[in-house]
């Protein structure tokens, strides 16, 4: 199935009004029991606004009425125990859950004010603008250079054609400039600049993950979603990724799922805590959540009393 088509898995009713949620179930929110600590007023502009988002996998209610705003150019961490729905939530932000046939998604996700859950959304374009980095590094079995250039080439971004020809400049020059910029932005250039044609699978795990981040940057995203990007890495590689994430947040909006609470505390500006049952229990400035959480359940979870 082409990703450009409205996926069958989505149960929404189509609407062309970009400011309207796709579907809402009247009265359902009022009946839910939810902690009151999610009304977080952050500073700055919302890059993404999620409103009353529910996700079901078949009969399993994986995410329950989640509403939150994600500020631009900052790091938002999603933490919580296994099975709490944080990865499900992350995947809703660029409609990756559409690929799961049993998934039913209900609610609204607006990106720069535009509803992403509506008919006619170009999912390829959406996922270019909302990139994703996964838990295990997954470089293509190609050269380092080709890993970076693959996306722009596929999307046609390098086919500047006419201008390049008029300037008598080959696309290769354009491509190499892009490769260097992305590798520099991903703090990998100094380590690989002399072996760009080597196979990417020969890089260490940490280098592969930074290559995947560079690859993600190559299509010029605005938001970068990261699903436990450092969980398979050693402490040194983890530190490099964490530094990189903080640097990226100067230009991009980063949303990161992590099991490592100290990592969330170190690198994020705001933290959302999901607890078992798919509830967003608390959302606030990271220092507030880790020094003085409002919710007792969150306190118990982050101090290790939650069994």
């Amino acid at each position: 199935m082409s990703e450009n088509q409205n996926p069958q898995t989505q149960t929404s009713t189509a609407t062309t009004d970009t400011d309207q949620p796709l579907t809402t179930t009247t009265g359902e929110t009022d009946e839910r029991t939810r902690d009151e600590w999610t009304d977080y007023e952050f500073r700055g502009e919302a890059k993404m606004t999620v409103d009353d988002l529910d996700v079901y996998y078949g009969d399993d209610h994986a995410l329950k009425g989640v509403s939150m705003e994600i500020p631009e150019r900052s790091v938002t961490a999603l933490i919580g125990p296994s099975g709490c729905g944080k990865s499900t939530y992350l995947r809703c932000l660029n409609r990756m859950n559409d690929r799961i046939k049993s998934a039913t998604i209900d609610g609204s996700v607006r990106f720069d004010g535009q509803e992403i859950y509506q008919d006619g959304v170009n999912l390829v374009e959406l996922r270019k603008r909302v990139g994703m980095v996964f838990q295990s590094p997954n470089p293509f079995p190609k050269s380092i250079r080709e890993n970076i250039a693959y996306g722009p080439k596929k999307h046609g971004d390098l086919d500047t054609g006419l201008l390049a020809r008029l300037l008598n400049r080959s696309d290769a020059e354009e491509r190499d400039r892009l490769v260097e910029r992305c590798l520099r932005d991903a703090a990998l250039w100094d380590e690989v600049s002399d072996r760009l044609d080597d196979n990417a699978l020969g890089l260490s795990g940490g280098q592969q993950q930074r290559l995947c981040i560079a690859r993600c940057l190559s299509v010029d995203p605005e938001i970068i979603l990261m699903d436990e990007p450092a969980s398979a890495l050693d402490p040194i590689a983890t530190a490099k990724i964490e530094d990189l994430i903080e640097d990226l947040a100067e230009e991009y909006t980063v949303v990161i799922v992590t099991h490592n609470m100290q990592q969330a505390a170190r690198i994020s500006d705001q933290t959302a805590v999901f607890l078992t049952g798919g509830e967003l229990v608390e959302y606030g400035d990271t220092d507030q959540v880790f020094e003085d959480p409002h919710s007792e359940r969150v306190e118990d979870y982050i101090t290790g009393k939650f069994g």
Partner: peptide, 9 residues
Amino acid sequence: QQPVAGDLR
């Protein structure tokens, strides 16, 4: 142990 929240305080 990297205490947090009430433990940190």
